[in-house]
Structure formats: C-alpha cells, structure tokens
C-alpha cells in the first residue's frame, strides 16, 4: 500500500466513521433515555436514503405509504385509549399528527414532482416523511412496555427491525438505488483529492454533533432528556413524562438515522436491508462507549470506520468478520474494567 492508497482508504474510513459516529450517538441517546437498544436504527438510514433516491428517480417513495399506515394504526390505538379514559381533549392532536399530517404529505408529494425540486427541498421532504415514523414506532412497540426489562425491550427491538426490513422490501423492492452526488467539487491537496461528498458528510456530521451538544446542554427539553436518562423517577416527579421523553428521543434518533442515510445515499448503493449492518457498526462504537459516553462512542465509531476501510484492502472478504469480531475484545475490555454491581436489570 502506498501513501496515495492509504490516504484514500483513510478518507473512506473517516467518511463512514462520521456516519457511524452519528448513529452511535443516537443509539446512546435512545438507550440512556428509554433503555431500548435501538436495533431498527439502520432501517431509518435505509429509508432516508431510499426516499431521497425515489424522489430523484421520480417515484413515489414507499415511506409515504408507511407513514400513512403507521399514522392510521397509531390514531386507532390512541383514540381507543382516549375513549377509555374519557380524555377527549387529546383527540384533535391525535387526529392532527397521525391522520392529517400524513394526508397532507401525501397530497403534497402526489401533486408536485419532487424530482424537479432543488436538492435541499428534496432532503427536507425526505426527512419530513421518515422522521415521524420514529415517535410512531415508539408509541406502537415500546410505550406499552416502558417498564419492561431491558432484555424484553431488546427482543421487541429486534422484532421491529425485522418488521421494518420486511416492509422495506414490500415498499422499495429488492433493487438498490443510489442518489445523485451532492456536489462535484473536489479539493486537491497535492496529488491527493478530497471529494465534495466526503466534505459534505464530515461537515454535516460535525455540525449535527455541535447542534446536539447545544440541545442537550442548553434547551429545557434537552435537559429533560438528560434528566430522564440520569434518574427516571426523579424526572417523572418533575412532570417529564416517560412517554414524552421516549417519543422525543425516538424522534431525534429517527432524524439522525434518516439524515445519515441521506448523506450516504450518493456514496453507496442502498438496498432495503443495507441499514442493518451500518447501524450495527454504529453499535460497535456505542458499545466501546459503554452505551453511556457520547464522546467515547463517537471516537470508537470513527475507529470502526477506519478499521473497516483498511481491512477491506487487506482482506476484503473478511471485512465484516473483522469488524464484528472486534466487538468481542471490546466487550471483554468492558467487562474487565467495569465493576459490575449485580442486580436484576
């Protein structure tokens, strides 16, 4: 390997690593607030990418039908609860978010041609379609189990992942797609050139991390999420409802996932089931951070990206084996350094 190739691989690794880092942050967030190990994170990546690609190809994205369907089910479930508890005041909000909003999105997308829109508008539209699926997922799958043990939540999480992969196949088909590159600019440093896409990915990730940092450090709702993560009962006693914190963290995670998908859409061909492996690599990072530390998770995720990139050069067939075997020594290290106070989770 000469320097040229080393740098090229490094660029690849950092691009992927930045994405894994974003995902690992979302995973840490969701786990800390809800104790859910968020396996379906990868599906949001795939849906984000595929939705954008669908717009560009002039097709109606499958996520629209998914949003309409999920909204419908959530509305039914919530209306039943509201009726049972005689909480009529909630009805307008239930109808608005779960039926009216998806219907408006459907009207908008079907009446215009998103393929003719500028890139930023397409991206916003894709996010507007995919992100609400996060809270809806929380409502349907996890909210009824808010007090369940971590293991039950994990099994549900895996089940939801399977459902979404299956639905992804139904709505997007088995063919992969790739979005158009965000820019053709490339930055030349000597013989080495950095592509515009790399810059876009790294910059967007960096900005997003700063925004998240500000959100958690400054805003009341960000603090409320942190509070829930630190002491759930304490947070509830302040009036921070578990449901609100859960939906908010799923909203953020879905947003981060979908945006990550949009960022990689021009780099790689995304299939309906591509997200899973990408999400899991974010997990390796998150586990390096002990599912608790944001900075360690992010650094770990970048390391995963680099490892993956260089191992694809040396032993490309064993790339996945190497990356996922890495988790075992990481777990071992965790287990030797954490003094585990044993009691039921």
């Amino acid at each position: 390997m000469d320097l040229q190739i080393a740098l090229l691989l490094g660029q690849d690794g950092i691009t992927n690593g930045a994405i894994y880092a974003l995902l690992s942050l979302a995973l840490v967030l969701v786990f800390a607030v809800t104790r859910v190990i968020f396996i379906p994170q990868g599906e949001f990546v795939a849906f984000g990418a595929l939705t954008l690609a669908s717009f560009q190809a002039g097709k109606t994205p499958g996520t629209l039908w998914l949003l309409l369907g999920a909204g419908f089910v959530v509305a039914i479930v919530d209306l039943v609860v509201a009726w049972r508890r005689r909480k009529w005041r909630r009805v307008p909000a239930i109808l608005g978010w779960n039926l009216v909003y998806p219907a408006l999105m459907a009207g908008l997308i079907l009446s215009i041609e998103p393929s003719k829109w500028p890139l930023l508008a397409q991206i916003s539209l894709a996010l507007a379609l995919v992100v609400p699926l996060g809270p809806m997922m929380y409502r349907l799958a996890f909210q009824p189990l808010a007090e369940a043990p971590v293991l039950v939540l994990l099994i549900v999480s895996v089940a939801v992942h399977l459902v979404l992969v299956g639905l992804g196949l139904v709505f997007f088909g088995a063919e992969g797609s790739r979005a158009a590159s965000f820019s053709d600019v490339s930055l030349d440093i000597g013989e080495f050139s950095i592509t515009g896409q790399t810059l876009a990915v790294v910059l967007t990730s960096g900005v997003l991390i700063v925004v998240l940092y500000q959100f958690f450090g400054r805003s009341l709702y960000g603090k409320a999420l942190r509070a829930t993560a630190i002491n759930r009962t304490g947070a509830r006693l302040m009036g921070i409802s578990t449901v609100m914190a859960g939906k908010l963290s799923f909203l953020l995670a879905a947003g981060i996932g979908a945006l990550s998908g949009i960022l990689i859409a021009p780099i790689t061909t995304v299939y309906y089931d591509t997200g899973f492996l990408i999400g899991l690599k974010g997990f390796v990072g998150a586990i390096i951070g002990g599912l608790a530390s944001y900075p360690v998770a992010a650094v770990g995720a970048v390391a995963v990206g680099l490892l993956e990139s260089y191992s694809s050069f040396y032993a490309s067939a064993f790339k996945e084996v190497i990356v996922f075997t890495l988790i075992i020594p990481m777990l071992l290290w965790r287990s030797l350094t954490t003094r585990h106070v044993e009691e039921e989770s």
Partner: peptide, 30 residues
C-alpha cells in the same frame, strides 16, 4: 404522575432522586 405535577402536587422521595451529573441550577430549572 405528570398529571398530578401539573395539578400542583409534588413529591420529594426518600432517595431524593436528584440528577447527579447535572448542576444545582439545572436541577432547579428542571
């Protein structure tokens, strides 16, 4: 619980349930 907090009932539990890794001011804000 949230509905009771909204109505004006507050509980200081035996465990105190503070947000340990947050500042005094942030605890109060919350």
């Amino acid at each position: 619980v949230e509905e009771m907090v909204a109505r004006g009932m507050n509980l200081v539990p035996e465990s105190r349930a503070l947000f340990g890794e947050m500042s005094v001011e942030e605890n109060l804000q919350l």
